[in-house]
Design a binder for these strands. Structure first.
Length: 811
DNA sequence: TTTAGCATGCGAGAT
DNA sequence: GCATGCTAAA
């Protein structure tokens, strides 16, 4: 058991002096409200512990209480606990919650973080053991692919048949499995047209030359180091006396090995996870790790968290019924003391559009509080789809009816083009020899550098083993620069000069890095490249600058945010280091919104009302998963279904469509086999009232009554109610508020008197999602717009801005 | 170098 | 249906 007499060590904890007050306070308040299972998970401190935490069973509560327990009993000092998560979000949440339990910040927990963040920290200390310098750069996926492309071309491999992305996938896979180039198993030797292993070795060599590591390397290198240096490993084993791992079912082989190495000796490792929620097999996660835990760590305590605090009994029963179809589970039975609640609701639709329309109406109805249910705010509703392309139908529909929504999980902030471009500039300012950064931006904005010019720079660089920047300087020095195209001849040396000047400023402590960043984006012409070129007359006349395209305003907005994010850091270097932390790009607006996201993105979240559309064989479960992984793939899909259902607190609505457009082709769809697996007693089959024309699909033995066809009557029924709908009322209130930018007076002198809309036929407008277009019809607040790129759509006026009213210019 | 026009291929996506 | 990435033409 834990040593309560270790108060010396406890008080010696330098960074966080956990106050005596906390110690002396009521005995362990963090244990209050824990159920017996959670309590066991918290108090079993010594030896291996497997905390099997079903969905909604208070896993994070137990995990954070465990940390608090370790600290407040003096069993461990903050810096002796290694606590690993997968995402920055999870790490942050854990930090905050531990801080709440302790009643003070936890800066003193330096080893609470993601696998990658912790490995970076360790690897910087011991980089030389794998031939890197401690200031190595971390490549993003884009850099990796670019590098591999070069290697493929150099190896005279047909890049079309053997694309760099594929190689990246293969190498990533090896790294996930902790396979170094010399250890590629013979079964994999044929990969990438038999050249895979050799290219892998070359790639690793290139990384070393560049003093760089990719994400996979961070773990792989640490495993390599620990395997080769017993003394070092011992040191860390003594250092990290207690190990905690979140989402253990998502660990890959490399992470598993790393943990095993570190836990060896004391075996004080507590892993938390749920084999039924393992949905990341495709990116290397091995469910086997959690299934095998008791074998790997003999004598492990297994604690099952089965009391669910999230969902109603019906929802839990439905989820349990589905997941029971999987073999080889550790087995858990979720139960609740809560109410029975609504049965899981199931409804079939004619096609995907119909499904989206119904969901839209249902959301409005639930917002109003019909069907004997309390009203639910859109903030508390989510639509969870299997594949992101399913979102389109919903977005289109919601835009039409003016239902506010947010999409989670589009392209991440830091992987947007403009952010990466800007970051490349910053990287060059910090280190002008960063060739990958140079490669990225040498022709961004266009500086007339094509393949020919690039080749000359490369050639000189390799002749004299210089960086690309230095190579340009060298070419300038002996006049060879003149052999380049006219534009490149002047622009490229100009760029290099700028880089060196920025570099000076970056090292100057007097110079604010935020201002420097703005200066860089401005001077490089990068900002300007998002505006249309203006003639001298236009400038003289003081015409406002015009954005280059529909994307430009958003991109400039992102850059603004990037600069803002810089403020929180000491210098550019520090920022680059921590850039992955700015991924959260969410600025919450006051307006309640429905959430639209993938099932994968929804793991760990919960919503009072959840919609699960598209339950059709081939879409969900995905055909591809089944083709490629067979039974294993199907089981992972089934876990995904389980994750989906268990996100719901009060209402869970599953739906499917009989027809769906797949890659532009209409296909008739069969209801998902998972629908058959829903226990009938816990399912209510919905048939929207006022419908006729039932048409039996007859395709499934499921408890589905039949399909309904979108009919005139249905149309009429939904129309009649529209004035009472939340959407309509919302429009009324919004019309009174100064909402989005109003079109300027001058542009709308010709508004006809009867049109209440601020727009009239022929106006040029801009829409956040569909871009520019022209108004072709006006019906109250609903406008028909012929979009330049997106075709003709009906949109509510408040989603439109008059084109040309571009707004303020960043910087 | 830039661009329009056609072929291609398609899941989920943290770090 | 759409984005991506190539070839051909400007």
């Amino acid at each position: 058991m834990s040593s309560f007499d270790d108060s010396d060590a406890f008080e010696a904890a330098s960074s966080v002096s956990l106050s005596q007050r906390a110690m002396a306070a009521a005995p362990r308040p963090y244990l209050d409200g824990l159920n017996p299972a959670q309590r066991a998970a918290v108090e079993t401190l010594e030896g291996p512990v497997l905390m099997l935490a079903g969905a909604g069973t208070g896993k994070t509560k137990a995990l954070t209480a465990r940390i608090a327990h370790l600290l407040l009993t003096g069993t461990a000092r903050p810096n002796e606990i290694l606590a690993v998560t997968f995402t920055n979000k999870a790490a942050r949440e854990m930090k905050t919650r531990v801080a709440t339990l302790l009643g003070q910040p936890v800066e003193g927990m330096p080893w609470l973080g993601t696998f990658h963040a912790i490995c970076v920290k360790l690897l910087r200390r011991h980089a030389e053991l794998v031939g890197l310098k401690s200031n190595f750069t971390i490549l993003d996926t884009d850099d990796q692919v670019r590098l591999m492309k070069q290697l493929i071309v150099a190896s005279e491999i047909d890049e079309k048949r053997w694309p760099a992305r594929m190689l990246a996938g293969i190498i990533d896979n090896w790294k996930n499995r902790a396979i170094t180039p010399d250890k590629v198993p013979s079964a994999d030797a044929g990969a990438f047209n038999r050249r895979g292993p050799e290219l892998y070795a070359q790639y690793q060599q290139r990384l070393k030359d560049l003093n760089a590591a990719d994400f996979g390397d961070l773990l792989l290198h640490m495993v390599t180091i620990f395997q080769a240096h017993d003394d070092l490993l011992d040191q860390y084993r003594r250092w990290f006396r207690y190990i905690l791992v979140d989402e253990y079912q998502d660990t890959n082989v490399a992470q598993y090995l790393w943990l095993r190495l570190l836990a060896g000796g004391h075996n004080n490792i507590c892993v938390v996870g749920d084999d039924d929620q393992s949905i990341y097999g495709w990116r290397g996660a091995e469910v086997g790790n959690i299934l095998r835990f008791e074998k790997d760590f003999p004598g492990a305590h297994v604690v099952r968290l089965e009391q669910n605090y999230r969902s109603t009994a019906h929802i839990l029963a439905a989820a349990s019924g589905v997941i029971a179809g999987n073999k080889g589970r550790l087995g858990k039975t979720l139960w609740t003391e809560g109410e029975e609640g609504e049965k899981v609701r199931l409804i079939g639709h004619w096609d995907g559009d119909e499904e989206a329309r119904w969901v839209g109406e249902e959301i409005e109805a639930m917002q109003r509080g019909t069907r004997g249910m309390d009203p639910i705010s859109p903030d508390h509703m989510a639509i969870l789809v299997r594949a992101s392309h399913q979102m389109r139908a919903f977005e289109d529909r919601f835009l039409t009816i003016g239902l506010p929504y947010r999409v989670i999980g589009g392209p991440r902030f830091y992987e947007r083009m403009e952010i990466r471009d800007a970051m490349a500039y910053f990287r060059l300012a910090v280190s002008p020899t960063d060739d990958l950064a140079m490669e990225r931006i040498i022709n961004v904005p266009r500086r007339g550098v094509g393949p020919a010019a690039m080749q000359k720079i490369y050639d000189r660089a390799s002749e004299e083993s210089l960086s690309l920047t230095a190579s340009v300087t060298s070419l300038v020095r002996d006049g060879k620069i003149a052999t380049m195209g006219g534009k490149a001849r002047t622009k490229v040396p100009e760029l290099v000069e700028q880089i060196f000047r920025w570099h000076e400023l970056a090292r100057d402590p007097e110079c604010s890095h935020v201002e420097l960043a703005e200066m860089i984006l401005e001077e490089s012409g990068y900002i300007e490249s998002y505006f249309q070129p203006r003639t001298k007359e236009e400038v003289d006349r003081g015409d406002p600058p015009k954005y280059k395209d529909v994307e430009a305003p958003g991109r400039l907005e992102n850059l603004k945010e990037l600069v803002k994010a810089l403020e929180g850091f000491e210098n550019l270097q520090g920022f680059l280091e921590h850039v992955s932390l700015i991924m959260d790009n969410e600025q919450e607006s006051e307006e309640p919104k429905v959430t639209l996201m993938t099932l994968h993105a929804a793991k760990g979240l919960e919503f009072p009302a959840v919609f699960l559309p598209g339950w059709e064989d081939g879409l969900f479960p995905s055909q591809r998963a089944m083709d490629e992984e067979g039974m294993k793939g199907l089981e992972e899909e089934r876990r995904l279904a389980y994750v989906g259902i268990t996100r719901a607190e009060r209402v869970c609505t599953i739906s499917f469509a009989g027809n769906r457009r797949v890659y532009g082709q209409w296909q008739s769809q069969m209801p998902s086999r998972f629908i058959d697996e829903l226990p009938e007693d816990h399912v209510e089959v919905l048939t929207p009232s006022g419908l006729h024309g039932h048409q039996n699909m007859g395709a499934s033995a499921s408890p589905v009554a039949g399909m309904m066809r979108g009919s005139d009557l249905h149309e009429a029924a939904s129309r009649a109610d529209v004035y009472n709908s939340p959407g309509w009322r919302r429009l009324q209130t919004n019309a009174a508020k100064p909402g989005l930018r109003q079109p300027s007076e001058a542009r709308h002198m010709t508004i006809d008197a009867e049109a209440e809309s601020a727009f009239s036929i022929g106006d040029r407008v801009f829409h956040q999602k569909f871009g520019y277009g022209a108004v072709i019809s006006v019906e109250g607040d609903k406008l028909g717009i012929a979009f330049d790129k997106a075709g003709t759509k009906h949109v509510v006026a408040r989603f439109l801005v008059a084109a040309g009213a571009a707004g303020d210019v960043p910087f």
